[in-house]
Nucleic acid binder design. Structure first.
Length: 710
RNA sequence: GGGCACUUAGCUCAGUGGCAGAGCGCUGCACUCACAUUGCAGAGGUCGCUGGUUCAAAUCCAGCAGUGCCCACCA
């Protein structure tokens, strides 16, 4: 047999992936041998709008290394793939398409629009899964799931019903984050804050003259029907919301305003009476120490309003426009427009004391970037009390372990201050809330929360569910610890009475060389498939794995992929050398014991010992999710111990006896074969290709199902 | 405002108490040799700064400076 002079991944990868698919070994039920213990990973389902980015590539590499390693160790391994319908994200993409045709989703109507989304899904939804194949991922494609499959819909309905029957789902009018563009409420976790320059406006509110007192300086002012005595100044970043004001609040300990508490202020432009109240939430250090209270459009103010029994007035609607509750001149104006006019009007009345520049965090929709409004709205909520308690307990008792451990803190901090989960969304693409007369759909994460067991057939008690639940590892990004991981944990406990996984591996974030976030919109993204084309999928995987050190973020440099490519070529060529040394007739793979009684040279003993040490160390590394250490160890062993030292020494044969020469040949083949096995989880294509071409007798059908070295 | 990380060679990073390391890049030499995607040799570092603990500190402790990320109701 003949290997080309250099390894050419383009000629190999497609063919080898087909070999794996045809072998059936991606499916745990078709793996050879008796396999009692299972090892399961469910993939974090990428959005159907998604394309593979470096984060996916890294996560896919980690998961595939683990799965291939365990598969070779004799586990019944399942890596279950799938995609998420990603409510808002997908709806937005399809809406953008419609926009090109000059249409909105309302032109089509709900039913027609959803049809459109399904068409889109059928056409593009699986692209990202094909990209995972290019990376060499050994998922069981026969079990691919989608969060809106018929069976999955049943799981979502069953889960909803369960919570409903328990009385944990309720309807409530709350001030929620609202995206005027997506026309839906959003949960706290779906907000992104962006720092923007704004102003802090200081506005003078007249104070009504106490009817009993005879203050000499009281007067009637032209713009108010009330007699006023003096003014109280409040500071605000959003003057347009004054239209919805219901009170002015100060801190109860603030001496400056002691006399004013209990009196009444007048809301400029509206001429509404506002009680002046005291509440501990008011920070006397900020602004003037007096704050306007707008219960309908601010979360703090809403809290305060509950304590003081203040009613809401909604002055901003779902479109982000001023409502009819406001005075006529402002009605129908967009928020920003109204802001400018109100500031002008206040200035004219001499009620604008001053304006300061102010840098603050503006809430944005994490899907479309539109500035969010806070508006009161009827929504469905899921009570979090018991569920949160269970979730905390699972991690505290170490039934679920975070890896690295420090991410526990993010998890606990969120759960300890948790609010009830707003599970309704006013979009069209998603799971309809299974109640009569409700058009809302469920938050995407409600269905994602069921992923580890709904994909295995729940609520039916399937064979798969019994065999593969709970899973072993969840490997995911840190930014969805609370959006997703937390919710899977309490859902798993609620419906399966067991946590959905034993380990949560929070992988590194891939940054640019400059330490910035990789993002498509900023043009700082890097397409892993381009790297695969340029250097090969193995090189890309190895280069990525090389950089995964202790969960530290990775400033990505291509240099490591170059290293990966060189390494694959080295493995290829070392094989060529070994094959030249051994005879052409098919050889039996030497077993370890054959060496123990033979006459071994110092070099022989050294390489065998080094191999042994490497096997043990790599196992330990992988058990601890230390992918970088494992790849460096394998690299060092193969390139230096094996190629530079042992192979080079083997070339000097003149002084050797016949036995020694035979030993050398056996050891070359033995070490090579074991190296291929050890390297296979990291660089599966090249090692499989070589294995397929090795002229040895007792071969398995694929290296993928060879026995892991012991 | 709170939290979590990070700072070591030109670049990207290992090393967590005992002679400063890797990959990439760079310099020189070597292609009838498995591999020039190679081999051999080499240059390159006050381990962010200041103190402390120790026989011994890149490593442990304290403080400072800088960078990044996350959370948060300061209007």
């Amino acid at each position: 047999m003949e290997l080309s002079k250099a390894y050419e991944p383009q000629k190999v990868e497609g063919r080898i992936y087909t070999l794996w698919e045809k072998s059936g070994f991606l499916n745990p039920d078709k793996l050879p041998g008796k396999r009692k213990k299972t090892y399961t990973i469910v993939i974090p389902p990428p959005n159907i709008t998604g394309f593979l980015h470096m984060g996916h590539a890294l996560n896919a590499t980690c998961q595939d290394i683990l799965i291939r390693w365990r598969r070779m160790q004799g586990y019944k391994t399942l890596w279950l793939p799938g995609t998420d319908h990603a409510g808002i994200a997908t709806q937005n993409v399809v809406e953008k398409e419609l926009k090109k045709e000059g249409k909105t989703r309302f032109d089509l109507g709900r039913e027609e629009f959803i049809k459109r989304v399904w068409q889109w899904k059928e056409k593009y939804g699986d692209i990202i899964l094909d990209q995972l194949k290019k990376m060499g991922c050994s998922c069981d494609w026969s079990r691919t799931r989608f969060t809106m499959d018929k069976d999955y819909v049943r799981a979502v309905e069953a889960a909803f019903q369960h919570y409903y029957d328990k009385g944990w789902i309720y309807k409530g009018k709350r001030v929620v984050n609202w995206c005027p563009r997506c026309q839906t409420s959003l949960s706290d976790l779906e907000i992104e804050y962006k720092e923007e320059k704004g102003n802090l406006w200081y506005i003078k509110y007249p104070v009504v003259k106490n009817s009993k007192s005879q203050a000499p300086n009281s007067k009637q002012i032209p713009y108010s029907k009330f007699q006023i005595s003096n003014f109280i100044t409040v500071a605000t970043t959003r003057p347009e919301t004054i239209l919805g004001d219901r009170a002015v609040a100060v801190n109860p300990k603030d001496k400056r305003y002691k006399n004013l508490v209990g009196k009444t202020a007048v809301l400029p432009l509206v001429d509404r009476k506002l009680p002046i109240i005291a509440d501990r939430l008011v920070d006397p250090e900020f602004g003037t120490g007096a704050v306007k209270i707008t219960p309908a459009h601010d979360l703090n103010d809403y809290q305060i309003s509950l304590r003081h029994g203040l009613p809401m007035i909604q002055v901003i609607d779902e479109q982000g426009k001023i409502t009819k509750e406001a005075p006529l001149p402002y009605q129908g104006m967009r928020v920003f427009e109204a802001r400018q006019k109100i500031v002008e009007d206040l200035k004219k009345l001499g009620l604008l004391e001053k304006t300061e520049e102010y840098l603050h965090q503006i809430p944005k929709c994490y899907r479309c970037g539109t500035t969010l409004e806070l508006i009161p709205s009827e929504q469905w909520f899921l009570k979090m009390g018991e569920l949160a308690k269970t979730a905390i307990e699972m991690v505290k008792s170490e039934k679920v372990r975070f890896q690295p451990k420090r991410w526990e803190k993010v998890y606990f901090d969120w759960l300890k201050n948790i609010q009830d989960w707003c599970i309704s969304r006013q979009i069209w693409w998603g799971h309809k809330i299974p109640l009569k007369g409700v058009d809302d759909v469920l938050d995407t994460w409600f269905s994602s929360a069921l992923w580890p067991f709904a994909t295995l057939g729940w609520p039916k008690q399937t064979k798969d569910l019994k065999a593969f639940y709970p899973t072993d590892v969840l490997s995911t990004a840190r930014d969805i610890i609370n959006l997703w991981v937390t919710r899977m944990i309490f859902s798993g406990m609620e419906f399966m009475k067991k946590p959905p996984f034993k380990n949560v591996y929070i992988h590194a974030t891939v940054l640019t060389k400059e330490g910035k976030r990789m993002s498509k919109s900023l043009g700082t993204g890097l397409d892993p498939l381009i790297l695969c084309d340029k250097y090969g999928a193995d090189a890309t995987r190895f280069g990525i794995a090389w950089q995964i050190m202790g969960g530290q973020d990775i400033k990505f440099v291509e240099d490591n992929i170059v290293m990966g490519r060189k390494f694959c070529n080295k493995v290829w060529n070392a094989t060529r050398f070994v094959l030249l040394q051994i005879s052409n007739s098919k050889l039996q793979i030497p077993n370890k014991f054959q060496f123990t009684n033979s006459k071994l040279t110092v070099a022989d003993k050294r390489i065998l010992k080094a191999l042994d040490k490497t096997i043990k160390a790599v196992n330990k590394d992988l058990e601890g999710f230390r992918f970088g250490q494992a790849s460096r160890r394998l690299y060092g062993f193969f390139w230096h111990d094996f190629c530079d030292i042992y192979v080079e020494k083997s070339k000097i044969q003149s002084s050797k006896s016949k036995t020694e020469k035979e030993n050398t040949q056996k050891i070359l083949l033995y070490v090579l074969l074991n190296s291929l096995k050890l390297l296979h989880p990291f660089i599966p294509f090249v090692t499989e290709e070589i294995y397929q071409q090795l002229p040895i007798k007792n071969k398995k059908k694929c290296l993928m199902v060879e026995e892991w070295p012991k």
